[in-house]
Nucleic acid binder design. Structure first.
Lengths: 121, 121
DNA sequence: GTAATACTGAACCACATGGTTCAGTATGCG
DNA sequence: CGCATACTGAACCATGTGGTTCAGTATTAC
């Protein structure tokens, strides 16, 4: 089993497993925002939003910088390359698996035809 | 904010946020397996593995069928299309965002040059 | 029929998550 | 200075997660 930095995958997939956090990423894709702006947009307390931002930061998907009173959040350095890579590989397995099943089915059909002929002999 | 069946995305990203479950998917990509086989492979009790399989089933990533004593697990109908779509869209946002930043930086450089000329006038 | 196998379900555990409130601290504005 | 703004941290709460054990039930093998 290939590994693909499992801890990072854990963190980023977990970060993506929440609609609010996905929403924050989409929001930051349009423009940087303060914690207050994000909290208002998603109808949540400052403290609650700060936790979500913390999770996203932990996964490397967001970076923040505090200037004066205001902490500005922006998209982080990661482009979800590893996550895409994992999913891509999974899809290849999936395809191979189902191709194999198709092959088995074809094989069964072929045998059936042979058996059919045998029975008619 | 476009929605992309958020509940499903929640379930599948959460299912992928665990190394054991990702391992189970990879394992099932090679061949179907019983709960016992999976539990042994991942050094876990039957009950524990059954929970993981339940999570994967809930996300549509695995299907199971019980014949006699044995419950056989195989890859489910989903190929993670929606997950890939979400990530793809995110990457587009990401690229656009950073292109914009580049543009802003260029704009600042241009202004600097203009200001420089002004100052020399 | 008895015993082993394969799973199932309930109950428990420690810890994480998604949210809150409340009481701060730090900064900016008049 | 004095007040409003913006965030921060601790504490709490309900619920979920990842695992266990233990006591079943259902199937298969001898």
């Amino acid at each position: 089993m290939v590994q693909y930095a499992p801890i990072r995958l854990d963190a980023s997939f977990a970060a993506l497993a929440d609609a609010t956090r996905r929403g924050v990423l989409e929001r930051l894709g349009r423009a940087d925002a303060s914690i207050t702006e994000l909290a208002e947009t998603f109808h949540m307390t400052l403290t609650g939003m700060k936790k979500h931002v913390g999770v996203l930061e932990g996964a490397g998907l967001v970076t923040t910088e505090k200037v004066g009173r205001i902490r500005t959040c922006k998209l982080g350095p990661r482009r979800l390359e590893e996550e895409t890579a994992w999913i891509e590989r999974y899809r290849q397995l999936w395809d191979a698996r189902f191709d194999e099943l198709d092959r088995v089915v074809e094989e069964l059909k072929r045998k059936e035809r042979v058996d059919g002929r045998k029975n008619r002999e």
